[in-house]
């Protein structure tokens, strides 16, 4: 199939699902499933003004949390992956921390850090930190020692070995970690917001469900889905860009 044909099929399938959904709503299940037309009207209303504040809050939490969490995770993973002794010593601690269901800590963060964006950023940051840490660590540990030796014999400094072998050799793993972390980060953001907040898409979601506003609920889900799609598309582009050398052999 050409890309055009693929797209045509995807659009057709989407329209079909929409039509089924609309029919289901028209047939009387509207109180449970709403209807695409009502959801669209809701979205139109929100995008006329009120949604931007919530969207902005959620995106800030997501982006800052992921940015900080993944940077720290990558740095820690690269460092410990290349420092076997430290890794052996610290490993049980890290695994123990990782075994804690982090989302369960959300009420704790909210208690200590209030209702603002901070507790969500911390939560998202922790979730992404661990995912990126473990992936980066695995990658850095698997660096081909023979490649490192080759650079050493050429006279490369430690920094040069890091830049020319360790970092690019771990890139596959880092990108993989980012792709895994994206949906988890989104879940963590929304969970934090559902628990207690005054703004954000999670807030809209809990508001809609309290009022039994089905159209509003689906409208939030639609926005979340779109964010998820855009983010995974962005990570796919990053992957193609960083890992172009792998094309054609996997």
């Amino acid at each position: 199939m050409t890309p055009r044909q693929t797209l045509a099929w995807q659009v057709a399938l989407g329209l079909l699902l929409m039509a089924l959904w609309e029919a289901l709503g028209q047939l009387g299940a509207v109180n449970y499933v709403s209807r695409p037309s009502l959801v669209a009207a809701k979205l139109a209303l929100w995008f006329g003004g009120t949604v931007y504040q919530h969207l902005g809050t959620t995106l800030i939490e997501l982006i800052l949390g992921m940015g900080i969490g993944s940077s720290l995770g990558i740095v820690a993973g690269l460092f410990l992956g290349r420092a076997p002794v430290a890794a052996v010593v610290l490993r049980p601690l890290i695994v123990a921390l990782y075994s804690v269901p982090l989302v369960a800590l959300a009420p704790l963060f909210i208690m200590f850090l209030g209702l603002g964006v901070l507790p969500k950023i911390v939560l998202v940051g922790l979730v992404t930190f661990f995912l990126l840490f473990f992936n980066t660590f695995a990658g850095a540990e698997r660096i081909d020692e023979d490649q490192v030796h080759a650079l050493e014999l050429m006279g490369a400094s430690r920094g040069e070995i890091f830049r020319k072998v360790v970092a690019p050799g771990t890139a596959v793993w880092i990108v993989g970690g980012l792709k895994i972390a994206l949906p988890y980060a989104l879940v963590a953001t929304i969970t934090g917001e559902l628990l207690a907040t005054r703004a954000g898409l999670g807030f809209l979601l809990s508001q809609a469900s309290e009022r039994f506003d089905m159209a509003g609920l689906y409208a939030v889900l639609f926005i979340l889905m779109t964010i998820g799609l855009l983010l995974s598309e962005a990570s796919a582009r990053l992957e193609t860009h960083l890992l172009h050398w792998r094309q054609g052999h996997d």
């Binding site: 023979d146 080759a150 020319k164 690019p168 050799g169 890992l243 050398w245 792998r246």
Partner: peptide
């Protein structure tokens, strides 16, 4: 064993 860097 060759140690070319596969990303270069």
């Amino acid at each position: 064993k060759d140690t070319l860097l596969p990303w270069r």
